[in-house]
Design a protein around this nucleic acid. Sequence first.
DNA 1: CCTCTTTTGTTGCAAAAACAACAGACTTGT
DNA 2: ACAAGTCTGTTGTTTTTGCAACAAAAGAGG
Lengths: 223, 223
Amino acid sequence: MKEYIAILKNTKLFAGVGENEIEAMLSCLGATSETYQKGEYVFRAGEHINQLTVLVEGELHIQRDDYWGNRCIVSRIAVGEMFGEAYASPDSGALLNDVVAVRSSVVMFFDIHRILSVCPSACRFHSLAVKNIFYAISEKNRKLVAKLGHISQRTTREKLLSYLSDEAKKQNSSIFQIPFNRQQLADFLSVDRSAMSNELCKMRDEGLIEFEKNMFKLFSHCD
Amino acid sequence: MKEYIAILKNTKLFAGVGENEIEAMLSCLGATSETYQKGEYVFRAGEHINQLTVLVEGELHIQRDDYWGNRCIVSRIAVGEMFGEAYASPDSGALLNDVVAVRSSVVMFFDIHRILSVCPSACRFHSLAVKNIFYAISEKNRKLVAKLGHISQRTTREKLLSYLSDEAKKQNSSIFQIPFNRQQLADFLSVDRSAMSNELCKMRDEGLIEFEKNMFKLFSHCD
DNA sequence: CCTCTTTTGTTGCAAAAACAACAGACTTGT
DNA sequence: ACAAGTCTGTTGTTTTTGCAACAAAAGAGG
C-alpha cells in the first residue's frame, strides 16, 4: 500500500498533508486496497457502502445499464479522484450506479466513519481531511451540474457543442483530447452513437470542428 | 432573524443542535437574512459566492435559461434546504445557474469560512456543523445523480416514468403530488411541454397513470 | 359577474433522433 | 502476416420530438 503514498499525496483527499504524515494516517483511517481488472465491478448498483474510496491507478466509470441495455456513463474517475463519498452518510440509500474498471485499476478504501467520528483533536489531520472531503464533493457536485447542463440540451449537436466547448475551456485550448471513444462519449451524453457520429461529421463538414480519433479542434465561430 | 430558529432547528445544517444553541451559533457563524419576492434572483449565473445559504421560507428554483430561451430547472429548493454550498470552496468558479424565488421567500446566509476555518474546539458545534454540511451535500449529490438518471432516458415517456416512479417511491405511495406544474415539469425533465402533455395523456389513455393537476397515480403495470 | 391571464390539452407539420445494418479502417493476438 | 475483433462512419427507415398555433379550462382581480 505504501507504494501509493506518492500518488495519495497529490489527491484532493490528502491535499496539504506530507508523505510521512500520510503513512501515519493510513492505519489511522483503516485503509485497505484492492486491484480490479478491466470490466470488473468495484461496486454494483443496489449495494450499500460506507467507505470513502480513492482511485490510485487506472480508470473507472460510474455508469448504469437500463432494461434495454442502454448504457449511461454518469462520470469518469481518474487517478487521484474520490468516489462513493456521497453514499457515506448514514441514511444514504442503495448505490444508484455501477462502478466499473475501464482498465486495470487499483482502489483504496477508507472507513468514512473513522474520518468523521473520531474526535478532531485526536489527530491533527482529521479536520483537514474533513475540509478536503468537503471541497472534493463540492467539486463533484459542480461537475454533475455541468454535465446536467450538457445533456439537458435538446439536440445532439447542442449537447456536443456544450460538452466540447466545456472541455476546451477546461483544457484551456481549442485543440484538446477527450477521455472517451465514440461509444463512451455517446453514453456520456446519452445519445445514440451513430446519430452522434453523423452529427460530428456534419459539424466537421460545416467547418465548426475538426477531429481525429480523440483529438478535437474547435473553431471560434461555434455559437 | 430569531423568528426562524424553530425552522433552522429542523434543517440538515443544524441537525442535532438545540434551539438555544442555534441562537448562540447564529452570531458565531455570521448569519444574515434577506427576503425575495416571486421572480427575484437570489444569485445569478456568473456570480462568485462564498456563503452557505439556507432557505427558511418560500421556495426556490436552481435554473438556467439558454440563448434560445429554453429554461432548465436543475433543482428545487424547499424550506430547510441548503444551496450554494458547492461553490463555497476556494477554487470553485462562477455560479453556473440562477437561483430564483418561485414565490415570496426568505434566505439566510452563513459565512462558510467561519464554519470551516475556525478551530473546531472553539465551539463544540463546529465539527457537528461540518459533518452536517457533508451529509447535506452528499444528499444533494445523490439527488443530482437521480435526476441525471431521469433525463438521460431517451424518450419523454421514459423520462416521465423514471421521474414519477422515483417520486412515488420517495413519497411511499402510488398516489402522490409533484411540486411542479406542467411547464416546470417539462423544464425539469428538459423536454417540450406540449410533447410531454401529449405523452402524459397517451399514458393515461393506455391505463398506465392517472392524474389531475399535480396529483398523480401510478398503476403497478408500469414497466 | 365579467374580464384578463395562466395553465393545460390538442393537432399538424417539419426536423431530429433512434435503430438497424453494413463497410472500411484500425487493433490485437497468435 | 493473418485472422478475429473493435471502432468509426455511412445510409435508409421508422419513431419521436420540437415547434407553432389554437381552444378549453381554471384562476385572479376588479
